[in-house]
């Protein structure tokens, strides 16, 4: 009962955000729909896969961007038709979707199996290695990409051309983000999700209880990879281009920053973090055009630093703190008697 007001406020705001997302293309300039909001949804999906692994599996993975990139490169190679690097197979874009997601998920299973025995800093290092390998692989295997990357990647006819109908891709991204969010929420409530959280909290005890810890981690990693791969397909439709720089270390850090400023303990934080990141990245440069010239990178860094220092739980952390403050104040008033039962719905790391 004590959580009820917070939950209601949460849901209310969530509902408002959803309503805004649905009507946004009618309210905001086209640039916002076509670029900032679509990019927010896509980056949010990748960051959500990272938050899923971190919050429910205890695995801070730096390989999510490379898996998303692998899906993107597969789509690029299969669906472009001449005039660019890569295989230029010219297949139907829907084949690109299927194979992009399947191949990226298979790679995620491999990555997951290889890294499932490590934890903490070692897990971070292994996934960082995956990120670097993927970056150089596509840079040096010129049959598949090369440093110049693949340009002119088409979206399916039903969605594209993206520049002519930006709102179609926006709604597709919105729908996919919503489905993936619901799927992740569902998975953490399944017996698998519950035991995954057990693995996160105490792998030794889970192991002695007979749970296969490595298998749990591998499956979770593969699922996270599947989510990231969906983001990768949407990314290449939106960007119409992918090159190794799209998955290089700075891109990996970008997604980590998004997850951290959003808050590493709640899935919704991924999209909040992505929104702040995308808007800041875009507008600070514009504000700084005359006064700060080309030093916008420093400004962005300082803002992120401030967020993380002021709230270790990211922006979602600030929100939670405000809610609990409000809750406490309410509990002090005689009309709102605090019931005894408590318990957190969302796990924390």
């Amino acid at each position: 009962m004590r959580r009820l007001p917070a939950l209601t406020v949460d849901r209310g705001i969530g509902g408002l955000v959803l309503v805004f997302a649905v009507v946004a293309p009618f309210l905001v300039p086209q640039f916002w729909t076509a670029n900032l909001l679509t990019q927010t949804l896509i980056l949010g999906i990748v960051a959500a896969s990272l938050i899923f692994l971190s919050a429910y599996g205890g695995m801070v993975s730096l390989a999510q961007v490379s898996i998303y990139g692998i899906a993107g490169f597969v789509v690029g190679n299969l669906t472009t038709n001449g005039n660019t690097k890569g295989l230029n197979l010219g297949w139907n874009p829907w084949w690109g979707v299927v194979l992009g997601i399947v191949i990226a998920t298979i790679v995620a299973i491999l990555f997951g199996a290889l890294s499932s025995r490590s934890t903490g800093i070692y897990f971070l290092m292994i996934t960082l290695t995956f990120a670097v390998i993927a970056n150089y692989f596509f840079g040096q295997v010129t049959d598949l990409s090369g440093f110049g990357g693949i340009s002119g990647i088409p979206a399916p006819k039903q969605i594209g051309p993206v520049d002519a109908h930006p709102w179609r891709l926006y709604y597709v991204c919105f729908g996919v983000a919503l489905v993936l969010y619901a799927l992740m929420r569902y998975v953490v409530r399944t017996p698998f999700g519950i035991s995954l959280q057990g693995v996160r909290d105490d792998p030794v005890r889970m192991s002695s209880l007979g749970y296969n810890v490595r298998l749990h981690r591998t499956i979770a990693f593969a699922f996270g990879g599947f989510v990231a791969a969906c983001g990768g397909v949407l990314f290449v439709w939106w960007n119409q281009h992918i090159d190794p720089a799209s998955i290089q270390l700075s891109a990996v850090i970008d997604v980590l920053v998004i997850a951290v400023i959003g808050g590493l303990f709640r899935l919704e934080a991924a999209w909040l973090g992505a929104f702040v990141f995308v808007v800041l990245n875009n507008y600070v440069q514009r504000l700084g055009f005359w006064s700060l010239s080309t030093r916008f990178g420093t400004v962005i860094g300082l803002v992120f630093l401030a967020i993380v220092i002021l709230s270790p739980g990211g922006l979602m952390g600030i929100w939670e703190r405000l809610l609990s403050l409000a809750g406490r104040r309410r509990s002090q008033t005689p009309t709102a008697q605090a019931p005894l039962e408590s318990g957190t719905v969302e796990p924390s790391v």
Partner: peptide, 24 residues
């Protein structure tokens, strides 16, 4: 209307082109 700041990477060039053409 603006000077785009890229970094010899195609990916950034596209982002900056979109900013110049579609936002500005």
């Amino acid at each position: 209307v603006g000077v785009g700041c890229s970094n010899d990477k195609a990916d950034t060039a596209i982002k900056e082109t979109k900013r110049l053409m579609e936002q500005l």
